[in-house]
Design a protein around this nucleic acid. Structure first.
Lengths: 214, 214
DNA sequence: CCCTGATCGTAACAAGCGTTACCGTATCAA
DNA sequence: TTGATACGGTAACGCTTGTTACGATCAGGG
């Protein structure tokens, strides 16, 4: 009964396969399918084909399709957070940290445009799936919290309420740019997006003048 | 041959039914299904049930499901544009016109939150449907053009390029607020949204100060 | 008053879906 | 080497999908 296993592996469990690696592979395939064929095109067979395996492996790796979707959503969040961390670490001063994190979150390159398509598909799926909606909120609130923290570092004199408002508004701007650029890159050209972010950041340090001014 | 028909009805055509009214009824049902069950829940049977008819009527009114989706999308655009027109007409001065149009486009009441869910579903469907994507672009560009026009009325001294940037940024902010509020009304509370719009408009008439200022 | 045909419901169709059961195979302990 | 078993592919299941064919019904012109 109490057999010693060579490595840190639970007794009686799988011997050869790497479950986590398989889950990641299938999640990656899920993103590819979502970006290419949309939410309606996301079938277990399509994911299996994209991953180069059969539906059998998919259903042995995840209990059902919804679990696959949730795992893929979670992993996407994780990867996004990692990239944001790296962007933070790479920047020199607090203000450029904020600017860099916002810029990398926005759809500048073509591969990020695909990611925005995946994001839209998840949002649409979350409309009818409470678990996905919960993941969506969790992810987005983490992003808002990150921007809030970067704001307080960059502009320490900003009052708390104004900072909270700025954080949600900046996140809304970023996600709006992503969503719109995903389907109309001509109107929401990368340059356009960059200027939108830069302008929003620049105006953070201004005071309003009377609206009638010329 | 040249029989006189009692009302303005084409010769040789249907005698009793009002095709357009039926299309509108089914499009309304489509919105309801999309808001409640998401894009995945949108089936011909669900639409028929919601409209209180059978799948037969649906398929006699539209050639196929995609046509139903497109008509519903078009009608949504039309209704949205009408509301924006009314908001414009109701406002007194150019600046309040701009503010009113932006505010009514944003998810303040609960029924508009449902509309945002429908919008997300359409965006997700457009990822894999070129025709829907074209409608999406057309609609959104019309909205950008409207904001651009209102901006030029409200702030005539704004340079052309700055005005174009402001228009796309404001639309991105609005759609971002809608998308995020649709799934997290707690974080994106109506008050929060209103402040985000007001701030963005207020800062339009400011000039940047040195970033290090306190 | 009947007859034509427009209108819409009924019911079936093939295709595709998520999911399950089963079986060959490779792998590791003994 | 051998036996047990974890693994993953195959194929089928029942169900739902979009779509089609057909039949009942009813309005309107002759």
């Amino acid at each position: 009964m109490e057999v010693k296993v060579p490595l840190g592996r639970k007794d009686g469990m799988s011997r050869t396969r790497d479950l986590e690696a398989q889950q990641q592979r299938l999640s990656t395939a899920t993103w590819a399918v979502l970006a290419h064929d949309g939410l309606t095109g996301l079938t277990v067979r399509a994911v299996a084909e994209r991953a180069g395996c059969t539906t059998g492996l998919v259903m042995h790796t995840f209990p059902d399709k919804r679990s696959l979707l949730r795992h893929a959503r979670d992993l996407l969040h994780q990867r996004t957070a990692e990239r944001a961390d790296q962007a933070e670490a790479a920047a020199a001063d607090p203000q450029s940290r904020l600017r860099t994190v916002l810029s990398q979150a926005v759809t500048l390159a073509d591969d990020k445009r695909q990611e925005a398509r995946v994001w839209i598909a998840y949002a649409a799926a979350a409309v009818a799936d409470a678990d996905l909606a919960e993941l969506h909120r969790k992810h987005n609130r983490a992003f808002v919290a990150r921007i809030d923290r970067l704001l307080s570092d960059a502009y320490p004199h900003l009052p708390d309420d104004a900072r909270a408002d700025a954080a949600t508004a900046l996140v809304a701007l970023v996600e709006g740019l992503n969503t719109l650029a995903a389907l109309d890159i001509a109107t929401y050209h990368p340059d356009q997006q960059r200027r939108a972010i830069d302008d929003a950041l620049t105006r953070l340090t201004t005071r309003a003048r009377p609206t009638g001014s010329r």
